[in-house]
Every structure is written in C-alpha cells, then in structure tokens.
Amino acid sequence: MQPDISVKNLNKVYAGGFQALKNVNLDIERGEIFALLGPNGAGKTTLISIICGIVNLSSGTVEAAGHDIVRDYRAARSSIGLVPQELNTDAFETVWDAVSFSRGLFGKAPNPAHIEKVLKDLSLWDKRDNRIMALSGGMKRRVMIAKALSHEPRILFLDEPTAGVDVELRRDMWEMVRGLRNNGVTIILTTHYIEEAEEMADRIGVIRQGEIILVEDKDQLMAKLGKKELRLLLQQPLESLPGELALEPLALSEDGYELIYTFDAQQEQAGVARLLRQLGDLGIEYRDLQTRESSLEDIFVGLVHE
C-alpha cells in the first residue's frame, strides 16, 4: 500500500545557514499512529512544518496522501489537519466562528452538523458562543484541535499536543486520537512525554540533530532495545563481587547491599536461574528481589545520548 506520507531525501537549510534537516527519509503508513521523538531543536517541528506547507523545503520531495506537497499543494494540504505546538488562537472570535472559518479555509462547504460533532467530542459545545480569549489554556488547546478536525482531514499532525495540559485533557486526547485512528485517520504526533508514545504509538521514529536515526515498530523497539534488570537485596553487605560471579553482567551497589543484574528482555530467563543457583552455592543470602523492564524513556535517553 502507498504510504500516506512519504518523505524522500529531504533537506532544510534555514536562511542563516542552519541545517535543520539532513537527508530525511520517512514513510508513514495509512491509519497508523506514528510518534516522532527527539530532543528540543532536533527538527521535529521543522519536519512537520514542511509537510504542512508552512516552511519551504530546500531539497527533496514530500508526498501527502499521494500528492506532492509543492506541485499539488491543494490536494496535499486538504488532506492534512495540523495542531501546532504553540497555543496560537484568535482572541475575539467565538469558538464556533473560529472552527467554521477553518473548515471554509480548507475548501469545504459549511457543515454545521460536523462542526457540532467535533465540538461535542472535544467538550467544547457549551463554549461555542464564548470568545476564545475568555477560555482557559486547556480549552484553547481543544479549540486548536477542533480547528484541525473541522475539515475532516485524513492525516492529523499533533505537535506536542499534551504539553502543559492537565491529566484529564490528556486522557481525553488519547481517547480522541484512538477514536480517529479507528476511523482510518493517520496520526503523527511529537511529544516529550515518552509514556505517551509508549501508550499510543504503533511506530516510533527518533530524530536527532536533523537526522532520523531510527524508525521502528514500537513493540519491536521495546523488545530489541529494552533491558531487564534484576535487583537482589542482600542480607549481608558484600565488599566485592566474588570471583565466580565476575564474568556475569553484574554490578554491586556502593553500600554493598544490592546486586544488580542486567539482561536483554528477549533473552531466556536461564541466566537468572543460574545466577540465583550460584548465589546459593556461595552462601550469599538475599531478602528481596525486584525485576524491572526499561521503559521507552530509558531507550530514548540511551539513543539520543549515544
């Protein structure tokens, strides 16, 4: 199947000479939730802005919904809804007017029933006649999402949608994103909250200094790069690791009370059994043990600091 977004050899050099994107290649499949992760200034917003038509590309090609974003910009842009990172809203317009404006701007005939549905889904219906300036930050964020959904896009970009948003709205948003995906909408989100990507995404891309350094199915990524950790709390502190254990991927805490054993999440558990047997043979007693699986956050931090 043709990807919904296809980025080929994309470069962006800003007027000052700063190269924000370096030969980016990326395909995003129809109907998936794709999370783009990366530290501040890595190029996430530049990439999104180019795809949406806000920033000009320097070289390369981008297709959205099968249309070249430069040559066939009308068709490409019509298929895209964008919720930008900054909370940029009108001030004096009512919620209803602002959302209806967006629909018209994207070339769609008025459809009050659709606008009503979007506003209701985002719990904005009661606020429809309020001026946007009178709304709270969270409500303004909802308005921006409503604007992006007003023209029924098949691709939705959410640039840091949950930055500075309370728990309730975040949960609502996740719910909404899942609902959209179930209706076949392709969703690309950038986020700093890695648990968000972990919870929502089908695939994850990591961008660092303008380069895509990894694109991977989330579960595979977790399995491949995820580490497991076993911590043993000892009855008596050890001064050093006994020689028999030195070969294992073992570490001893400073106070000598904890043994930390790290292993691949995919690897068979035989290593753990062997370790415990060895400890028994050596007469090292422990009073508790914990295992922990590394989160996407650990993986991410590991990747961007490589």
Binding site: I54, L82, N88, T89, F106
Partner: peptide, 14 residues
C-alpha cells in the same frame, strides 16, 4: 502577530 497565520499558510489556498 498572534501566530494564527500558520493556518492560512497550511491551507489549500493560493
């Protein structure tokens, strides 16, 4: 000034 220009720039308007 308000930043809402993003919408016009990203819209399918010539």
């Amino acid at each position: 000034f308000s930043g809402t220009i993003y919408e016009v720039l990203s819209a399918p308007v010539s």
